Amino acid sequence: MTFPELLTRLDTLLQQHRPEYYATLGPPATGAELAAFEAEFNLVLPAELRQWFGWHNGQEGYDSFFQNNCLQSLDGAAESMRINNELLADGDFVTNWWHPAWVPFLENGGGDHVCVDLHGTFTGQAGQIMEHWHDWEARTVLFPNLTAWLAAVVQAYEQAGAESALLTDEQLEELEPEHPKGFPQEFEAG
């Protein structure tokens, strides 16, 4: 499936199995909001990430979207990036604690993120999906790209939805996506 097809499938699954959660999702990010984000951080977002924020720009509250993460808004991603970029510029981080080309799209509400790595840190593969922990050195590359990640999320939702008509936060926190061969890849900052 293509990324837009996966988003459509996810949208349907959320409406079917998590209608109350679905009602908390934000409206799509506008083209102007996406352009302002790119200009502020001097980045070009890949088409899939633009489509992601153009699907729903974050959510209200911290109910779990998948595993223990919720959707981060474009404004939330910008704020996280500003803070981390400032700390990086001040010399507060060891190597690969943070990179200015890591764009958060999920957060756990405690300062940790799942990011699209536009730089290709550790592997040289720009566009990979990785975890950023604010207080832990682990830097796990979870998926090779956003499409592979979304395909695994949709598959996990489909499997969970086959077992239960309505899905709870607790069920979503326990879901384990099927990773492609060779993933996840474990690295550490420092």
Rank of each mutant, 00 (worst) to 15 (best):
W52A: 05
W52G: 05
F53W: 15
G54Q: 07
G54Y: 02
W55D: 01
N57C: 04
N57A: 04
G58R: 12
G58T: 10
G58H: 08
Y62K: 04
D63F: 00
F66E: 01
Q67I: 00
N68L: 09
Q72N: 07
Q72I: 04
L74V: 05
L74Y: 03
G76E: 04
A77Q: 03
A78L: 01
A78Y: 00
E79H: 06
S80F: 01
S80T: 12
M81I: 09
N84K: 12
N84D: 08
L88C: 10
L88H: 09
D90T: 04
G91Y: 02
D92E: 14
D92I: 10
F93C: 08
F93M: 10
F93R: 10
V94H: 11
V94Q: 13
N96Y: 15
N96I: 08
P100Q: 03
P100M: 08
A101Q: 15
A101G: 03
W102E: 04
F105K: 07
F105I: 02
G109A: 11
G110Y: 13
G110Q: 13
G111K: 10
H113R: 13
V114D: 10
V114I: 15
C115V: 15
V116R: 05
L118G: 01
L118Y: 02
G120D: 14
T121Q: 14
T123D: 13
G124W: 06
Q125D: 12
Q125F: 07
G127L: 08
Q128G: 14
E131R: 14
H132T: 11
W133D: 12
H134S: 14
H134P: 12
H134E: 08
H134R: 12
W136N: 15
W136D: 15
E137H: 13
A138V: 13
T140F: 01
V141I: 15
L142C: 06
L142D: 02
F143Y: 01
N145M: 06
A148R: 15
W149H: 00
W149K: 14
A151P: 00
A151V: 02
A151G: 04
V154G: 04
Q155T: 15
Y157V: 09
Q159F: 07
G161C: 04
